[in-house]
């Protein structure tokens, strides 16, 4: 553990370095200090890349400032910024966060050729007909017949699920995963859900299993996880 001044504290862990940056000084001071601290540090050039986590405390940084810090750290030997964490977010981000975790309720029939796209979870009261498509960044709940395509977690959330009163889809998509209906004629099933299991495949099961495999679906926990 190396301590330099009071502005920057560097801690080494098994996963790399963590930089604790003071949150009451000016950004300029911090920048200069960080530059100095990292320059004086001895780094073994034989080592592999070291990942760095930056803890900003209660400081809010603009994107440009973040980039500046990131560039600075990257310019030093073998350091790579893995993440920057701050206790504060902007109102805009908070709104976005809220939007991402909200349930959007829609009542309509999504017909062939129509696409219904929402940020957050989708609760559709109505059918998705063959050729129709529903897309959500969160979960998809269909209170009706799902006969078309449903895409949950479209921005990469593999924990998203698709639930339908009547499950007879052409395709189910969750994040980057896809499953399609079998080639033989098959009737749909009432009250089912689709999710990605441990073997990284979309499986369809009765929706009661969700209590076990996705307990985070209920309550506020969901929105925090999605954020």
């Amino acid at each position: 553990m190396v301590t330099t001044n009071q502005l920057i504290v560097i801690k080494g862990t098994r996963h790399g370095l963590t930089l604790y940056l003071d949150d009451s000084c000016s950004f300029h001071d911090l920048y200069v200090e960080l530059d100095r601290a990292l320059s004086t540090d001895y780094m073994d050039t034989e080592d592999s890349m070291i990942t760095v986590t930056v803890q900003l405390g209660n400081r809010y940084l603009h994107k440009e400032q973040k980039d500046k810090l990131r560039d600075l750290i990257r310019s030093k030997h073998k350091l790579v910024v893995q993440s920057m964490e701050s206790n504060v977010v902007s109102k805009q981000d908070a709104l976005q966060w809220k939007e991402d975790s909200e349930v959007q309720v829609r009542t309509k029939t999504v017909r062939s050729g129509q696409v219904l796209e929402v940020t957050g979870d989708l609760l559709l009261i109505g059918d998705v007909n063959p050729g129709g498509k529903v897309i959500a960044t969160g979960n998809v709940f269909v209170l009706g017949n799902l006969r078309g395509i449903a895409h949950a977690g479209v921005e990469g959330n593999t924990a998203a699920v698709i639930v339908a009163s009547y499950m007879d889809p052409v395709q189910l998509r969750i994040a980057d995963f896809l499953s399609r209906a079998p080639d033989y004629e098959s009737a749909g099933v009432y009250m089912e859900c689709g999710y990605i299991d441990e073997s990284k495949k979309i499986v369809i099961d009765r929706l009661q299993v969700l209590t076990k495999i996705r307990p985070e679906l209920s309550g506020f926990g969901r929105s925090v996880l999605n954020g």
């Binding site: 017909r111 129509q114 129709g132």
Partner: peptide, 16 residues
Amino acid sequence: EKSSVRDADRIIGLLE
């Protein structure tokens, strides 16, 4: 027939 029901569905969507 499935194909004509599919197209009818599309048309109904457009008529909306």
